[in-house]
Amino acid sequence: MTRDASQHSIRVGIVGLGGIGHHHAERIADTPGRLVGGVDISADARDRFEAAYDVPTFETFDALYDEGIDAAIVTTPNKFHEEYAVEALESGVDVLLEKPLANTLDSAERIAAAARDADAFCMVGFNNRFSPGVEVFKSYQDEGRFGDLTHVEANWVRRRGIPGRGSWFTSKAVAGGGALLDIGVHAIDLALHFLDFPEVVEVTGNTRSEFGGRDDYTYLEMYGEDVEDADFDVDDHASAYIRTAEGQSISLEVAWATNRPPTNEFVAQGTDGGATFDRETGDLTVHRVSDAGAAHFEDAAVETRSNDTHKREQRAFFDAVRAGEAPDRNTVEQALTVQRVIDAIYRSAETGRAVDLSESSDEAVPAPERSPEKPRQ
């Protein structure tokens, strides 16, 4: 069935009707999209979604496709990303796929391969790139205000913030990993985005699971339900050092739970200036030095309008659907680079050694190429 979203509102289906599925559904009304249905294997989830949005829901993607859709937003647990994303792409339906690309590197590579071969595209949900502070940073970077960027500190640390213990988030079989795959994926993507996705040549990392399995885990609030005696077989803390072919580096610190103050700061250091971006508040501070008048340090606060990053992400996705061209941001190839780095961190943690990803290695992680434009057939 041929889809043409150029002359009408974009017909959108959501696959995965849990919390993030509802989060996306609530925002579609303020975009060029029109929600026409949803998919979930859970009858209870389908009932709640139908009651909330007055659209039909189905057990299979085929049934949603037959309803008539131009685009799909996939928000299932990580293990099922491949199944639904590949089915949609092979059907010629453009996909906005929530991060991470998949639960394993092998699965992520199959999604990327399907996107390369399809007459549709896959955009990946790294919504933090759509923060005004990030976009101001990239604009300043393009103007050369920072000189050559050399290092990024990427910090996403919660004092207590494990998603519901016993939920799919804390199951390695379903999620693929813990804090590193849940929030670390955002931190790595944003750091690589600041550096324009260079070639990664070496990764050293360590992961820990210190809090999630404890009977005396003390918290003030939890994202989901805390299931007593639930299995917890994922990481809740990860540290890593990432080096690029051009000599740039990234230091990474992510955690669901720690005994330290939380932080969401990203600090970019360049030869002519730098900046600190607070992901939590959206604040951007630009750091410079000068001898104009007298030697001095300058820390300039950048004030922007607050915005909904998921809504802006949706708008960019729908614009690409309407244009019939793969977007040049949040590409599946960039997401695959992030997934390869995550996989390398886990392997480094397991072996206690750095992982070589240089071009001379069989596991090279090249800089992602821009996705080719694919005209509709």
Results as ranks from 00 to 15, higher is better:
36 V>H: 04
160 R>P: 01
374 K>Q: 12
72 A>Y: 01
92 G>H: 00
209 S>K: 09
205 G>V: 06
142 D>A: 15
94 D>N: 10
104 T>A: 01
281 T>R: 02
235 D>A: 06
66 D>V: 04
303 E>K: 11
178 G>V: 08
310 H>E: 11
190 L>R: 09
25 A>E: 08
100 P>T: 07
250 I>D: 00
98 E>C: 02
74 V>I: 15
210 E>S: 14
59 E>Y: 09
133 G>P: 09
322 R>I: 02
197 F>M: 00
346 Y>H: 11
151 H>Q: 08
78 N>I: 00
107 S>W: 10
178 G>H: 04
364 A>Y: 14
200 V>C: 05
28 I>H: 05
235 D>C: 10
28 I>Y: 03
52 A>G: 06
131 S>H: 10
313 E>A: 08
247 G>S: 04
375 P>S: 12
116 R>Y: 03
299 D>H: 14
196 D>A: 08
156 W>D: 09
345 I>S: 03
191 A>T: 00
374 K>S: 09
55 V>F: 03
130 F>M: 12
122 C>H: 04
315 R>M: 13
41 I>E: 10
28 I>F: 06
214 R>C: 06
359 E>F: 08
223 Y>S: 14
111 I>Y: 04
76 T>L: 01
219 Y>W: 13
106 D>A: 14
193 H>E: 13
140 Y>V: 07
138 K>T: 12
283 D>Y: 08
284 L>C: 07
160 R>L: 01
323 A>K: 04
165 R>G: 05
